[in-house]
Design a protein around this nucleic acid. Sequence first.
DNA 1: TACTATCCGGACCGTCAGTCCGTCTAGGGC
DNA 2: GCCCTAGACGGACTGACGGTCCGGATAGTA
Lengths: 205, 205
Amino acid sequence: MAERADATRNRRAILLAAERLLAERGVEHVSLDEVAAAAGVGKGTVFRRFGSRTGLMQALVDQRATAMTEAVAGGPPPLGPGAPPLERLIAFLDATMELATANVALIAAYEHAMTNEERTHSTRQASPLYQAWHQHVSDLIAQANPELDSELLSHILLGSLHSDLVRHLLLRGESQRLARTLRQLATTLLTTPPGTPLAGAGETE
Amino acid sequence: MAERADATRNRRAILLAAERLLAERGVEHVSLDEVAAAAGVGKGTVFRRFGSRTGLMQALVDQRATAMTEAVAGGPPPLGPGAPPLERLIAFLDATMELATANVALIAAYEHAMTNEERTHSTRQASPLYQAWHQHVSDLIAQANPELDSELLSHILLGSLHSDLVRHLLLRGESQRLARTLRQLATTLLTTPPGTPLAGAGETE
DNA sequence: TACTATCCGGACCGTCAGTCCGTCTAGGGC
DNA sequence: GCCCTAGACGGACTGACGGTCCGGATAGTA
């Protein structure tokens, strides 16, 4: 049997309430008791639906990221398939930056909740969303310049979108600056021809 | 009057106990009650000495980082003053990577505790240690290539040393890989001559 | 209407950071 | 050596929070 109507209604109410509270107060100033109260629902309901604090945050994040994930997989270029790797990478970084900027509080809450998880040394790298993004960026880098350590550079680029840094810059109104620098960085990396320092320097160990 | 002898003794005992427990159990599996008990001290003492969980973690981190900070400020080149910027930057990244690798658990505990702080939207960027390091890296970049957004690139480079990523790589035994890639990245950035894509691309907004 | 699979709510639990205050003592002054 | 007090000590206590549990309510079906 499908989900009961009241269950669906309550799940929506919880997501909505959580979203609102998270926006109003800062990260970590929202307890699940409060979310439940704001949603007009018992605390037990919240846990039955989402399993844990992390689960709730993950649901919220996924909700925001779905559109972009789909655009990447099958939308029109340059975000979707079809454009050259560098252009796709830049489009992806722009889109992700925008997403991260618009949802700092939420993402911070998610990342923080995650590090509290008991089982599984869960880090941000373990989240399905991160893995998908990492794979995508990694592929693009490898296509553009196979000599690079695409996997690692992908981690580094995505690291720039870590909630910490984005929040830090947002507080100073300098988030486009990050977007711009990222574009330049990506361009330099992918267009540096093989044989230049990047592929050979520092092999001292 | 200077600190009383028993106070000093207890502070040492607390730091020692915390260090040990943190190494034995993972991050976030050590409560301050336990630290106090292991140090043979009351919980009140822990708080009087360090103010909060974050304070204790910070003290531990500072303890580990002091040697390196001094080497950077006044030690022999290439870590200390005297060597060309790129060499200093590489030496610094190597040293920091080593530090980060050897103390992942501790640093993770510190960063995590920090995001729980009530007052002051404290992020990792707010810690004095991070600020000092950021300033240093930023200066080196600016010296080597004034056209770059040194401040931001410094954040990005330091972001690669975030406990999350380091832990992720350590679990796979691939931390030297990060060190190597960072060296290459730094080299590419600082030796890319002005006028190439890095300083001009992506100005679309 | 009757029945049941499913959901609901909120009391309850264990844990933990941080506070408070009565007691104790290190160590300077005499 | 003895006194005195600034400062340290410890551990009971508080408040908050994530997560669990189960008796009662209800949606949806026959």
